[in-house]
Design a protein around this nucleic acid. Structure first.
Lengths: 203, 203
DNA sequence: ATATATACCGAACGTTCAGTCAGTATTGTA
DNA sequence: TACAATACTGACTGAACGTTCGGTATATAT
């Protein structure tokens, strides 16, 4: 890799980082290319040289983030013995993400903006599938270990995803302590439910 | 109420209905005032005569919807004896809403658009408080009746809200059957959890 | 030294869109 | 009938914003 390529990559990273900061601060739509230009010192044209579009830039950030999350998890998974512990750890990590890395806010907004390139659409679908697969794996592991009731891990994976998704949304107006609490409560409920009477289970 | 006022009210309703159809179809941002104009036959100025702004118009629809939902619930609540049944009924109604009345999609989008009048902000906060209070009531009732484990109904209300919120989001790309299933699974998990070992509860 | 590809610049473009306003039509009232 | 209030019109405004494109600078290869 020669000097030019190196410089180029640095620039690209610089743009990405500035963009991330702005997206985090102001959300997706409210962040204009002009502002990213102002923050980087780079030019508008250059941004479009490195990234196909605003969407493309944002997607790049999301994928980067996803990679980091996964890496982080892989490094820490061995710390937790039972699947139950792992579930709580996941909740903890997600809550922390909510707090420290609020690209989530921009991400939600982005996910809800209706006009998307078909390419973006498919890359987003990929990410979602990966999340569900992650959940499903974890749940299946818990079932196999006898920690969780035997059940359809695939369906439960969707429920778990819904819970995390919802917690994420609601946490937006919560303070840090309440956010952590919400995630933890959510997992506890997921694990144990609230019913006293187990007959209802067969409904 | 004289003829003029009557006519005026009809016009207002006509605008609201056309707007609802469009918001449902295309989402909040993607629906332009021009399109509402085209759909109503009314003029742009007239819309602004009847509604303060696009936001105001949308909020009007949301509040109308909320009122209908509540009314509908009040009429049907007596059909369900136990709180558990009520919870499932709520899930059913929410799932049906998701399917038949997908103003939800536009609503989510709207909720995530960051720039809002302070008035809109506060009216939204009101709605949220009402939802949580509704959940809390229901849960407290369940606890009092001995159906649910004693616990902090307020905290659980947030968890329940998160679950419904998340289910709503995920259902966006699901077909009707899977949507209904998701809501039902979510409530079942909420009620019973997935853990076999109850010791974890004290974590 | 020259040629070429890569990296970068920024003014201009085209479009979108919520909101305004000066004016007109219609209905109610004195 | 005259006056006033309410209901309605639609051309226009002004600002925002993503994207493009003709052009320049710089490093590498020949």
């Amino acid at each position: 890799m020669n000097q030019k390529q190196l410089q180029s990559e640095q620039t690209k990273r610089k743009i990405a980082e500035a963009a991330r900061a702005l997206f985090v601060q102001k959300g997706y739509k409210a962040t204009s290319i002009e502002e990213i230009v102002a923050a980087t010192g780079s030019s508008k044209g250059n941004i479009y040289y490195h990234f196909k579009s605003k969407e493309g830039l944002f997607l790049h950030l999301l994928e980067e983030w996803d990679r980091e999350w996964e890496l982080n998890w892989e490094q820490n998974e061995h710390l937790y013995k039972t699947t139950t512990e792992k579930l709580y750890a996941v909740a903890e990590q997600l809550a922390a993400d909510d707090l420290n890395h609020p690209l989530t806010k921009a991400a939600d907004e982005f996910f809800h903006n209706e006009e998307k390139t078909s390419e973006v659409e498919s890359r987003m679908a990929e990410m979602k599938v990966k999340h569900l697969a992650f959940n499903q794996n974890l749940l299946q592991e818990g079932i196999d270990r006898g920690e969780f009731m035997p059940g359809d891990a695939e369906r439960l994976a969707v429920v778990l995803e819904a819970i995390f998704f919802g917690a994420n949304q609601l946490s937006r107006r919560l303070n840090p302590e309440k956010t952590t609490l919400l995630y933890r409560d959510a997992v506890t409920v997921f694990l144990n439910g609230v019913a006293t009477d187990k007959q209802a289970k067969e409904r």
